[in-house]
Amino acid sequence: MAEMILTVEDLTVRREGVNAVEEVSFSLAPQTDTALVGPNGAGKSSLVKALLGLIPHQGGSVQLLGQRLGPQGQLPPAVRAQVAYMPQSFAVPPRFPLSVAEFVALGWDGPRRPRGAVAEALAKVTASALAERLLSELSGGEIQRVLLAFCLVRPRRLLVLDEAQAGLDAQGAERFYLLLQELRRREGLTILQVSHDLEMVRRSCDRVLCLNRRLRCSGPPAHALSPAQLELVYGKGYVPYHHHHH
């Protein structure tokens, strides 16, 4: 069996004095696409931030690409270089004086960026035409593609997305998911994505983790997104959210 990309055991994360995430355990196999779902305030963002070492965790352990995170979330640079993160609600202030090409170049965290790396990353996400545009002039869908180029400007093994499709219309979200699937195949990526779009998760992910502070269920979408399981995670009377596809 291939070595796991990520192994989480009994992870507990405290935010502002309360347990946002409690004793969560799971692992990610290479080149899988896993969705993390759950109601607002379920601890999804806290969990992904703790996995990446962006915030400290208070209990349990996280092993990322064979390296264990310290309690403060310290991640060795060599491991960090293989992991990329797309944050929730990335907003660029008006007239922020940064071109798309400059922004994508900032994603490179090695000693020397090879010539052509930025152009190649933009081509991967079909955003070559945006290179000279200001980041602040882009639409929501364009921003998401450029963020992907930022993440993939150098080869990564794990891509973590925190509600990447939020703010996109149904067509934009669909295009984004298709692009993500294509990149996953082509780049051999392992994906962990926080999502509220259960229809999209059902169609495109291999596995679902249902979180409501604790891990309530996990497994393939057909099992984890069954009405009984959803009620367990979201509570009684839950109406699944989905885009209206035209």
Binding site: L54, L75, P77, R80, Y85, F90, L106
Partner: peptide
């Protein structure tokens, strides 16, 4: 330069890039 731009744009993104 890189640090100042990234932390101005998004703190989580900056932290994720070290």
């Amino acid at each position: 330069r890189r640090a100042q731009i990234l932390l101005t744009l998004d703190e989580s993104l900056a932290l994720s890039r070290g």
